[in-house]
Design a protein around this nucleic acid. Structure first.
Length: 403
DNA sequence: AAAAAAC
């Protein structure tokens, strides 16, 4: 189905036309008419399905069609990370070029200047505000945000936000908003917690389910049974024998991210780190360099595993298996986007074997296991039933609940 | 046992 057939406002269509978008994705086909109709919506979908445009387009359409002024806030979008807020706002600005829809991204880590700008936008009004929970609340608490006429609330990556403990913050934000409003909730998974959140804040929602629990088919996955000491050498080997102009290396802790970056740079490789340990400005600079292909290798925590859109990443390396099995899908989903193909290499050591077996279980597929290249020496032996260190000698007497 | 998010 084309966007024109979805009866979007002509100014919105002009923006789509300018960037060469013509056909709606499945989630857009269902969500757009339903949102325009004014219904609440619960969408099980990830980025890469066209989820963001699925809510941005109808919000923009309604602002245009109803000729809504921007002397107040019309819509609020809440999302879990700063980079995601920036990205949604950028996408919005691209799409709204011909519409006169105004927007601002509100997130932490800024300076006094950005605070003043945010304050001005929130008090004088902007059609759409995209933000992370903490910063939105601190502005709302100060009382000047013109939210009395908010008509739409979007919760993006809702499962992630609950994981991060944002439930109370979300409720707090909602307490500032008019009771009568349209709510859109998007989540990659639908655990009971999300169901109950939906039940609490949505009214008779339309459900859309475009969930992909299986990774993009164009991603070639392989797992390398590598000891920690073999990993950097294996990365060098991969780079030597593959053409990899653009590569993300994920690791599960900020410390590891820092150490890996150091080790790679010591080898003369073009790598930089991104994690919440960096100044916000630096996070943005480095992500921009990587997106513009001025930087070959990005070493990252899961801060960018969800939602972040970067074209043409040739390879994702998981330096370790992620703690949350869902994150594996998100991490490797950074590659093979749009029409391209991609490769995902996951290092698993003894500790990671159990975690990786769970990932395979979730995907309902087995990933090919290989040993590190010969000159690096043999890796650990893989036994999927092995629980790795899970029941290692350290904690047989531990009592109480663990998860 | 982790990451992220407010000053």
């Amino acid at each position: 189905m084309t966007f024109a057939e979805l009866n979007l406002h002509e100014d919105v269509l002009a923006g789509l036309d300018a960037i060469g978008f013509e056909k709606a994705t499945p989630i857009q086909e269902i969500a757009i008419p339903s949102i325009i109709e004014g219904k609440d919506l619960i969408g099980c979908a990830q980025t890469g399905t066209g989820k963001t445009a699925a809510f941005l387009l109808p919000l923009m359409h309604k602002i245009c069609a109803q000729k809504i002024e921007d002397d107040h806030i019309n819509s609020i979008i809440i999302c879990p990370t700063r980079e995601l807020a920036i990205q949604i706002d950028q996408q919005l600005q691209g799409l709204s070029y011909f519409t006169g829809v105004s927007s601002i991204a509100i997130y932490g880590g800024g300076d006094g200047d950005s605070f003043t700008q945010e304050k001005r936008a929130l008090s004088q009004g902007a059609h759409i505000v995209v933000g992370t929970p903490g910063k939105l609340i601190s502005h709302l608490n100060l009382g000047y945000a013109n939210v009395k006429q908010v008509q739409n609330l979007v919760l993006d990556e809702a499962d992630r936000m609950l994981d991060m403990g944002f439930l109370d913050d979300i409720k707090k934000i909602i307490s500032f908003l008019p009771k009568k409003r349209q709510n859109l909730l998007f989540s990659a998974t639908m655990p009971p917690k999300i169901r109950s959140l939906a039940k609490e804040i949505l009214t008779d929602p339309k459900e859309v389910n475009i969930s992909i629990s299986k990774p993009a088919e164009r991603v070639t996955q392989v797992a390398v049974l590598a000891h920690d000491s073999q990993k950097i050498e294996t990365i060098k080997h991969l780079l030597r024998y593959n053409d990899v102009p653009s590569l993300i290396i994920f690791a599960s802790t900020k410390l590891k991210v820092r150490e890996i970056t150091k080790a790679l740079r010591k080898e003369g490789l073009d790598a930089k780190e991104i994690s919440s340990d960096l100044e916000q400005k630096e996070r943005e600079d480095i992500l921009r360099q990587f997106k513009n292909r001025k930087l070959q290798m990005l070493v990252a925590t899961d801060v960018i595993s969800r939602g972040i859109d970067i074209d043409n990443i040739d390879m994702v390396i998981n330096y370790d298996a992620p703690n949350d099995p869902e994150d594996y899908i998100h991490r490797i989903g950074r590659t093979a986007r749009a029409a391209s193909e991609g490769e995902a290499v996951t290092f698993i050591n003894e500790d990671d074997m159990y975690k990786f077996a769970r990932i395979e279980q979730m995907m309902e597929m087995e990933v090919r296991k290989i040993q590190p290249p010969e000159h690096v020496g043999p890796g650990p032996e893989y036994n999927p039933k092995s629980r790795g260190n899970q029941r290692g000698g350290r904690k047989p007497f531990r009592k109480g609940k663990r998860r």
